[in-house]
Computed example of a mutant assay.
Amino acid sequence: MSDRRKFLKRAGFTTLSTLLAMGFLHKDKREQDNTNAAIANYETTPSLRQLATTKGMLYGAAISSDALQKEPDYAKLLARECSIATPNGELKWSATEAKPGVFTFELADLIAKFCEQNNMRMHGHTLLWHTARPDWVPYPPTFKMLERHVKGVMGHYRNSKVLKSWDVANEVMANSPEETDNPYGLQRGFKPELLRDLFLLAASVDPTKKLCLNDFGIENGGWKSQQFLKTIEYLKNNGAKIDWAGFQSHLWFSKNYPFDEKGFSSVLKRLKDMEVEPVVTELDIVIDTPFPETIEELDKMVANSYKQFLDVCFDGGVKTVITWGITDRHTWLRYPEWMPQKYKENPEYQHYLRPLPFDKKLKPKPAFYSISQAFKEASDVRRRS
Rank of each mutant, 00 (worst) to 15 (best):
R382K: 15
F375N: 06
E116A: 15
I232L: 06
K76L: 01
R196S: 09
A67H: 06
R80V: 01
P278Q: 03
D311A: 12
A95Y: 15
P366R: 01
T44E: 03
C82S: 13
P290R: 10
L211G: 07
A21G: 15
S47P: 01
D315A: 15
R121P: 08
L229M: 06
S160E: 03
G56F: 02
D73S: 10
K363D: 07
T142R: 14
Y306V: 14
F190C: 03
S385K: 10
F199N: 14
D288W: 00
K161Q: 05
Y59E: 00
P258N: 07
H26Q: 08
E345G: 00
L78K: 07
E282S: 12
G155E: 01
E71T: 05
K70W: 00
D315P: 02
Q248F: 06
G23V: 12
K164S: 14
E106T: 13
L51W: 00
F105M: 09
K164A: 13
L268M: 15
N36F: 05
A108E: 01
E233G: 07
L298Q: 15
E178H: 14
V280N: 14
H125G: 15
F247R: 09
L268N: 01
Y352V: 11
L198M: 12
G189F: 11
N41L: 02
G124K: 12
S160M: 06
S265E: 07
K365Q: 05
Q341F: 13
D28K: 10
L200T: 14
D380N: 08
G325Y: 05
D315Q: 10
